[in-house]
């Protein structure tokens, strides 16, 4: 693990992104649109909204994330820069970490924009602390990004990659998705402080296991 290498790959990705801004723009617009869609799904003034809104908020990130994640390695594959990347004197693990960090930056950016947007659009009163809700979402997004980036590399050589990616990532993330929704509801509806929620610890440990497995197995994906 070499931080300088990781940082340089992250920098490279951010620079490429800042030129075209394809992924970020799409992700942001998609987040906006799906927030609107979910708003239409329920009557905005009915009390039901209070119960379902945390789930909606989390799903918005999952859908937007799917859009961005599938680009992480596929972009490299399509433009043919993957070879260059694997020829560079950077260990495979560092490439994976760099991709995870880059995706995380994207997701956090989306989160910072979408979270206030959600509160405004849904007219939502968070019962617990706003920071806790934000942190729960961040933990969920970390898990999502770890599994998603890894699997994005896995499906690189598959046919109809974007489709296969969803089918693989969503089942593997099912525990995290469920646990995050439960803890999000606990924070946003029942106003329970973050540290006394058991589910979030469980989700975090699942994410850690996934991250360890990912770094152990990444070498096998990159060998051609």
């Amino acid at each position: 693990m070499n931080f300088k290498h990781i940082l340089s790959v992250v920098k490279k990705d951010l620079r490429v992104e800042s030129r075209g801004k394809e992924t970020v723009n799409f992700m942001f617009l998609f987040t906006f649109i799906s927030l609107l869609m979910f708003n239409f799904a329920t009557d905005p003034f009915s009390p039901v909204l209070n119960d379902v809104a945390p789930g909606f908020l989390w799903f918005v990130f999952i859908f937007a994330g799917m859009l961005g994640l599938s680009r992480a390695f596929l972009k490299e594959k399509e433009t043919g820069t993957l070879q260059g990347l694997s020829l560079a004197p950077i260990s495979n693990d560092d490439i994976l970490y760099a991709k995870i960090i880059y995706n995380l930056i994207l997701m956090l950016g989306i989160q910072i924009i979408a979270f206030p947007l959600f509160i405004v659009l849904f007219n939502y009163n968070i019962a617990g602390s706003t920071l806790d809700a934000f942190l729960v979402l961040t933990i969920g997004n970390v898990g999502f990004v770890v599994v998603g980036s890894f699997m994005s590399a896995l499906v690189m050589s598959a046919r109809s990659r974007e489709l296969v990616l969803q089918i693989i990532v969503l089942p593997l993330l099912l525990p995290v998705i469920i646990l995050i929704i439960i803890s999000l509801r606990k924070v946003m509806i029942d106003a329970i402080p973050l540290l006394s929620i058991g589910e979030i610890k469980l989700a975090a440990s699942y994410v850690v296991i996934m991250a360890v497995l990912a770094s152990l197995l990444f070498d096998y994906i990159m060998e051609e």
Partner: peptide
């Protein structure tokens, strides 16, 4: 995943990783 990869060796390698996961 196995149905989506054509090359036998690539398929074996990728699905092995997923199997461990």
């Amino acid at each position: 995943l196995r149905t989506a990869v054509d090359n036998i060796e690539t398929r074996a390698r990728l699905s092995a990783v997923l199997g461990i996961f």
